[in-house]
Design a binder for these strands. Structure first.
Lengths: 359, 359
DNA sequence: TTGTATGCGTTATCAG
DNA sequence: CTGATAACGCATACAA
């Protein structure tokens, strides 16, 4: 564990800590935030009374007059309780930390996160995101800087991070969209996604299938799961002519792949695309080669992104809805935090196919 | 009287606190995190010494032996300093809060945010994002829950939020990508983006221009700025036949718009698209209508997203690079935090056109 | 060089 | 019902 105190200059942040310098206690415009003691003085009561009023506790009875005094003083001074002091006193903060993998948080996943955040905020907590690849391996440092009430992870942590997490007393809530073996975690069933694509293509008369995916290390785990599902499902469906093509993000590669596939034989090809962008590449390659969609080739994307409505022909796509899962995660967090009331049943995300013209 | 009664004795600290809550304090597996006092006891030194060693202060000299003792004890106990206590003591926390508008943080903007985060983390702070539309109007509540060292805003705050910000003692750093009038803030010059599109199209021989944009309230301010630039620039370039079409995200609308444009006359049309997705719509509409690109119609997108390489033909696109701006913002934050060393010159984001086959 | 005492702002407890 | 006061964990002048 890194015990380095980082480069924080010990002198600089002494600027506002009034340990030494004589503090001019004036009601006038001062740069230091007012404390509950200031409010108490202004209202002519004790600090305890201020605390009682501001936290409006039901087990203590305060004279309405006193209460008003306190409220007024607090408003006048613009009093805001110090989160640091509260956290120190309470033993935990009000921040729920989202540890996001290097995923694309646009679209459905973004909604999911927002939904969870909204739900949790109802319990008086605030959800902050730590995003990008930067935090990997530095979780310990992070936890040393922010007083978190809980950490929500969306994928397994690295060894170092897991250790840091275990070392701390902060609870981890797992919202693993992929890796959860069972139970207390959300699962998007990747096999269902592929199955919907295949079922549709089979229903439309395709007998020859290709799984097309753009190489992307960020999503490797998801990709692996889907490819596995594709292999299993095609075998189960008795489709012998199934293939997986891995591409990089250039049109040429798509054209080549399609050319090669057509060279084998000219039968109609059904393409299960990893996502909508991959599907766009397939459509473009087909156009380039003069292959007509959906007459000679069908393609179905995943995610139902806005672009699916803008291709020619418009793209059929599989979408999943994480709304229910958001509620599950929020409930898990609430329970972990000891503020939960209800416990929604565990559901798996509804997955549906949005049919458009690409087949 | 009782004032003098309770002197903080490092030894009695634990022993005598058990007045009310009988807290069993064992060295064994306890759920509470170890404190610096625990480390001190374990190492057989005072709390001050522990603090000195752990913050490795240069103005105090510690016996190497003692230092090792402390370090060892800290490691053994898995000691992690409490952020809450540090924040309370220091008067400010180590969290820099990014207040993100409801923007798409994929692509270049995402890189920008990561870059800023990485830079700031070098100064010992951590950047957390508060994302989505949810926080608008609730900034006060947020600031009451997290001990932030600074808040970085990317667009103007609402009145309520601005008041809350002003009420607090937390400094606001403005990284307004669009609204900054001048000076201390980052600016993506929207006019330059449009200019690059137009220059290219003019160079390729187009004399009739259309600005195409997909309706999106989230980006309205950016859209307005670009449309304004388009109008000004086409007038300045002596292009009389310039038009702006606002679409929603369905292919039909694109087809209709292009049909209408071709109905006026059959001259070649240059399309400045709001972004790559809009450009995809244009390409699809052209394909649907049998208009060949780039022979009869040219289109240039913005953002140079991965999809630009996957259309048929591949899409020319304008990209901007916010790396330098990230450094500027990071420096601003550092300066505000009083930890900054250098002050990079203010630059505006380099904007370039990536030429592909769509013209 | 190390130990002692104090305060940061909040809340809980208990005596008036 | 109110007032005084003890912690929470850390950092640091100052004394030894």
């Amino acid at each position: 564990m890194s015990r380095s105190r980082m480069s924080t200059n010990p002198l600089s942040h002494r600027a506002r800590t009034g340990a030494h310098p004589p503090r001019p206690k004036e009601v006038s415009v001062s740069k230091t935030a007012p404390t509950s003691a200031d409010v108490a003085r202004e209202a002519g009561v004790s600090r305890a009374t201020v605390s009682y009023v501001l936290n409006n506790r039901s087990d203590v009875r305060i004279t309405p007059a006193t209460r008003e005094q306190v409220l007024l003083a607090a408003r006048q001074l613009g009093y805001q309780p110090s989160p640091a002091a509260r956290a120190l006193r309470a033993g935990r903060g009000d921040v729920v930390l989202f540890l996001l993998p290097d995923w694309d948080t646009t679209g459905e996943l973004g909604h999911f996160l927002e939904e969870v955040g909204t739900l949790i905020s109802k319990e008086g907590f605030v959800c902050l995101r730590y995003e990008g690849p930067q935090w990997h391996g530095h979780l310990g440092s992070l936890l040393g800087k922010v007083t978190a009430a809980a950490v929500v992870t969306f994928s397994p942590l690295s060894d170092a991070d897991r250790d840091a997490m275990a070392m701390s007393t902060i609870p981890e809530v797992r919202a693993w969209l992929l890796d959860g073996p069972e139970g207390h975690t959300v699962r998007i069933d990747q096999a269902t996604v592929v199955q919907l694509q295949l079922d549709r293509l089979i229903a439309r008369g395709y007998r020859r299938m290709i799984y097309a995916v753009i190489r992307d290390p960020r999503n490797q785990r998801f990709i692996d799961a889907r490819v596995r599902a594709f292999r299993n499902l095609t075998v189960a469906a008795g489709i012998g002519d199934a293939d997986v093509v891995v591409l990089d993000g250039e049109l040429d590669g798509f054209v080549d792949a399609l050319t090669a596939a057509r060279a084998v034989n000219e039968s109609r090809i059904g393409v299960c695309a990893w996502n909508d962008m991959t599907a766009v590449g397939i459509l473009s390659a087909a156009q380039t080669l003069g292959i007509s969609v959906p007459e000679d080739l069908g393609v179905i994307g995943v995610d139902d992104t806005p672009i699916a409505s803008l291709t020619a022909p418009p793209l059929s796509s599989v979408r999943f809805d994480l709304t229910q899962d958001a509620a599950v995660i929020a409930a898990n967090v609430a329970e972990t935090l000891g503020v939960g009331s209800k416990q929604p049943a565990i559901t798996s995300a509804p997955v549906t196919l949005i049919a458009r013209a690409s087949d």
